[in-house]
């Protein structure tokens, strides 16, 4: 079994479409069900983290800019780590990811073992 990082990229959420607590609750379910599906197959290595949309970018020569990043159309919204026999299998697991219904995408990357 190899490990793969699944990176969720989402379109920037505009200020006016700030979801209500009830909407956030409703958004949680598909995510929890999807991660639960992976965990039930014993293929979840880490539930990873969700990332806030604000951020900073540090560049050479002491240049620090605030996000959102004009040069990036899609921001990273979060990630999980799964185990799978192949990258195809890892991609298969990503097909039901709720980010796809929100116009986002999933990037699947093999993790290089350290030893």
């Amino acid at each position: 079994m190899k490990e793969f990082l699944l990176i969720f990229r989402r379109n920037e959420v505009s200020e006016e479409s700030q979801p209500s607590p009830e909407q956030i609750q409703a958004m949680m379910k598909p995510w929890q069900d999807w991660i639960g599906n992976i965990a039930a197959q014993n293929k979840l290595v880490s539930s990873g983290n969700r990332l806030a949309s604000e951020g900073m970018v540090v560049k050479p020569n002491n240049v620090i800019t605030n996000g959102p990043y004009v040069e990036m159309k899609e921001a990273i919204g979060g990630y999980i780590i799964v185990s799978a026999n192949s990258i195809d299998e890892a991609a298969e697991l990503s097909k039901d990811c709720p980010i796809l219904k929100m116009n986002g995408n999933v990037e699947v990357r093999a993790i290089v073992p350290m030893d």
């Binding site: 379910k29 929890q32 991660i35 639960g36 965990a39 039930a40 197959q41 014993n42 979840l44 539930s47």
Partner: peptide, 16 residues
């Protein structure tokens, strides 16, 4: 939802 969380803490076939 409780099982979803339980499986993230610890996998077991019976929980799955």
């Amino acid at each position: 939802q409780l099982y979803n969380r339980l499986l993230q803490v610890e996998y077991s076939p019976i929980a799955a």
